[in-house]
Simulated scan of single mutants.
Amino acid sequence: MQRVCFLLKVREDRAAEYRERHAEVWPEMLQALTASGWHNYSLFLREDGLLVGYLETEDFEAAREAMGRTGVNARWQSGMAPFFEPPEGRAGGTGPAPDEAMVPLTEIFHLA
């Protein structure tokens, strides 16, 4: 099982609404995540907008590709895109969808 952690940046002025949206994730989005192999998925949001995501999956790239093939993911990502700051190195404009900007961090320690 792969453990995947990633960082994204939510616009500080949109953090409250971002939290509200995640308090009521669409049931079909939850079903798609589970069916695509996303397990033990958590998001943590710091007050300044730093978002830390964590999930477990057999194969992260396969799980991400499976989500990419769902219509619900396209709708969700489109709705979430305005909440995020552009990835570092991109000045304004539209960047990748939030799920495309998820770059896993390198795990350096795990206590089993």
Score class of each variant (00 low, 15 high):
M1K: 09
M1S: 12
Q2L: 09
R3W: 07
R3N: 10
R3H: 09
C5D: 14
C5N: 15
C5Y: 15
L7M: 06
R11M: 06
E12G: 05
E12T: 08
E12P: 04
D13M: 09
D13P: 00
R14Q: 07
R14L: 06
A16P: 02
A16F: 02
A16I: 04
A16N: 12
E17Y: 08
Y18K: 06
R19V: 05
R19D: 04
R21Y: 05
A23Q: 11
V25D: 11
V25Y: 05
W26Y: 04
P27A: 04
E28F: 02
E28H: 01
Q31R: 13
Q31G: 08
L33V: 08
L33K: 14
T34M: 12
T34N: 12
S36Q: 00
G37V: 04
H39D: 12
H39S: 13
N40Q: 14
N40L: 14
S42P: 07
L43F: 07
F44A: 09
F44P: 05
E47K: 05
E47W: 07
L50N: 07
L50E: 13
L51S: 02
L51P: 02
V52M: 10
G53S: 08
Y54N: 07
Y54L: 05
Y54H: 12
Y54S: 05
L55T: 04
L55D: 08
L55K: 00
T57W: 02
E58P: 12
D59T: 07
F60M: 05
F60N: 09
F60C: 01
E61Y: 11
A62K: 06
A62R: 06
A63C: 00
A63R: 02
R64H: 09
E65Y: 06
A66Y: 03
R69E: 12
R69W: 08
T70V: 00
G71V: 00
G71R: 00
N73W: 15
R75I: 10
W76N: 09
W76L: 08
W76V: 14
W76H: 10
W76R: 11
Q77E: 13
Q77K: 10
S78P: 11
G79D: 04
G79S: 03
G79T: 03
M80V: 12
M80R: 03
P82Q: 03
F83E: 09
E85W: 13
P86V: 01
P86G: 07
P87G: 00
P87K: 00
E88G: 05
E88Y: 08
E88A: 04
R90C: 12
G92L: 06
G93R: 05
G93K: 07
T94E: 15
G95C: 06
G95K: 04
P96H: 10
P96M: 11
A97H: 09
P98Y: 03
D99G: 10
D99L: 14
E100F: 09
E100S: 09
A101V: 03
A101L: 06
V103P: 05
V103A: 08
V103N: 09
L105Y: 00
L105Q: 06
T106I: 15
E107L: 14
F109H: 09
F109D: 12
H110L: 13
A112H: 14
